[in-house]
């Protein structure tokens, strides 16, 4: 229990340990801790930034979707309108075509009627001439009374 050389030995041992700790233990550990702290701070900051980015992207997406929806509605409207006008045009065109066809048919019928009427007129006059010829075979010469017969045919 007396003071001996051990005291100096212990002091030296302590200084050696402290020096070793100072050189090889403390700095790398502190550096690792500091780096990790930095990394965590960076990570948190990045997370926050990502959050705001996400928020912004979501708003952007909402805006784009809204625009797209409006555009789509516009397109549908336009298409509807265009369809309506097409139908209308087709309808008027059809109307016109129908009338045109009707008109053509009418004129054709009229022409046919006229032609038939001419023919009938000719035939009637021929029949009339023939019958008159039969009646008047004896007394009437066809060439003598040609002017009378022509007048008659015109009156029919």
């Amino acid at each position: 229990m007396s003071i001996t050389l051990t005291l100096i030995g212990q002091s030296i041992a302590m200084l050696v340990f402290v020096l070793f700790c100072m050189k090889y233990i403390w700095p790398p550990l502190m550096q690792a801790l500091e780096e990790r702290r930095q990394q965590i701070a960076d990570g948190l900051a990045a997370g926050e930034r990502a959050q705001t980015d996400l928020e912004r992207a979501r708003q952007e997406a909402d805006k784009i979707i809204g625009e797209a929806r409006n555009q789509a509605m516009d397109i549908v409207d336009q298409a509807n309108k265009r369809g309506n006008t097409l139908v209308d045009e087709a309808r008027t065109e059809g109307q016109r075509e129908r009338e045109r066809q009707l008109e053509a048919a009418r004129t054709e019928i009229e022409q046919e009627t006229n032609r038939v009427r001419e023919e009938l007129r000719g035939q009637v006059s021929a029949i009339a001439v023939a019958s008159a010829e039969k009646i008047l075979q004896r007394e009437i010469d066809a060439s003598t009374h040609q002017d009378i017969l022509g007048k008659l045919a015109n009156e029919l």
Partner: peptide
């Protein structure tokens, strides 16, 4: 015991990673 201390801490300090 000082060497135990040095050994324990040095083994960590040598391989210390910030990961």
């Amino acid at each position: 015991l000082g060497l135990v201390f040095i050994g324990l801490f040095w083994s960590v300090a040598r391989k210390a990673t910030s990961g």
